[in-house]
Design a protein around this nucleic acid. Structure first.
Length: 366
DNA sequence: GAGCCGTGGGC
DNA sequence: TGCCCAAGGCT
């Protein structure tokens, strides 16, 4: 059971926090120059699981490309993905377009102004809804993100596991009690700024934090114990062959399926070894695996190619839940009619949205 | 509710 | 290198 503050302590905390925020907060961030819901929204989506320094140039480019919600609603998908290329979690930008269309179709182009209604929009969950509602519309709802979890856990010595979804309720209700009713948006952003400066996950410096007098874990020397967070499972290893087939018309190039990892991005053909090699109990040499892949390539794409392994270590890439190990196979062929995919010149490939792992493969082919 | 969904940075 | 971390949401 946590020890709740009385009204005097809450008021004093708010005053201390907001005074610090007014003086030391990151007021120059490009999405803090006004309170346009569109600007707040785009920044909040980009900032999900992504650091501020990474987001800044993407935010500027996104606003130049899609100045209004109407521009976003009408954008072709390839431009969406190209604008988001490198940010990751690409469903974020697809959902943004869905939400833009929802606002136009269901709300006559005018933003809903409260947390409950905002959560009906695609890609907007409890955190983002509270952030937009408080920052753009002054609704006094706490925005419970990773920063708020960490800061509140230390201030109040909360030992619930923040990796568990049900824990959110504890923090939200606590936040409701201590949020500043007059400046809820600034309160939420101040907690975030605190969480990314003095009260980071590692190398925190609570000694110099403006709210150290309110930090129960710091005061009794148990700060290292908070927040409590169970470990995520390790990424599962997956092994692929990537097939780099070059013809006079360009590389064999194919768009990935819409659903799942890297949906609708362009890549070279990939074969997971488990798809057709490890399903039986046979022991395969690498040469046998390459030969099997070559036959598969002919059957799937109609491409006859003498595949050679690119020397050196395979390319690796770690996702949140997967670890890819990719061995590259290459061949140079005449232009052949394709059953799947297309021949694409390097000039055109540059314009296609493609994932980081594909970029690593290009680097290896240089 | 557990698994899925990217990438870059720090140590 | 192999972890963990960074303004989460969807299924």
């Amino acid at each position: 059971m946590i020890e709740m503050w009385d009204d005097d302590k809450i008021n004093a905390f708010q005053a201390t926090l907001l005074t610090w925020y007014d003086q030391e907060g990151r007021s120059t961030l490009p999405w803090r120059q006004d309170r346009e819901p569109y600007h707040i929204w785009v920044s909040e989506i980009m900032l999900q699981q992504t650091q501020v320094q990474t987001v800044i140039p993407y935010f500027e480019r996104f606003m130049a490309t899609f100045p209004t919600i109407n521009d976003l609603a009408m954008a072709p998908e390839q431009l969406l993905l190209k604008t988001w290329e490198g940010l990751g979690y690409y469903s974020r930008v697809r959902n943004m377009q869905k939400a833009a269309r929802q606002i136009i179709d269901d709300y006559a182009g005018s933003w809903p102004d409260n947390m409950q209604e905002l959560q009906k929009l695609a890609g907007i969950g409890p955190y983002t809804a509270a952030a937009i509602a408080s920052i753009a519309f002054d609704e006094p709802v706490p925005a419970i993100d990773g920063n708020a979890f960490r800061v509140f856990a230390r201030l109040f010595k909360i030992d619930a596991d923040i990796a568990q979804p049900k824990t959110r309720k504890i923090f939200f209700e606590l936040g409701q009690q201590i949020i500043d009713q007059k400046r809820p948006g600034d309160f939420n952003q101040a907690i975030m700024d605190l969480g990314s400066s003095y009260m980071t996950a590692k190398n925190y410096d609570s000694e110099h934090s403006p709210v150290k007098a309110y930090n129960a874990a710091y005061l009794d020397g148990t700060e290292a114990l908070y927040p409590v967070k169970s470990k995520a499972p390790k990424p599962k290893p997956v092994t692929y062959f990537a097939i780099a087939v070059k013809s006079p018309a360009g590389y064999l190039w194919e768009q990935r399926p819409t659903k799942g990892l890297l949906g609708d991005f362009w890549m070279m053909p990939l074969y997971a070894l488990t798809d057709f090699i490890l399903d039986n109990d046979a022991h395969w040499t690498e040469e046998e695996m390459i030969q099997a892949t070559q036959k598969r390539l002919a059957a799937d794409y109609g491409v006859v190619a003498d595949l050679k392994r690119v020397p050196g270590r395979p390319v690796t890439h770690v996702y949140t839940h997967l670890k890819w190990t990719v061995t590259i196979l290459t061949a140079t062929v005449k232009k052949q009619n394709l059953q799947r995919g297309q021949w694409q010149t390097m000039a055109d490939i540059q314009n296609d949205p493609q994932p980081k792992i594909q970029d690593k493969i290009w680097q290896r082919l240089k």
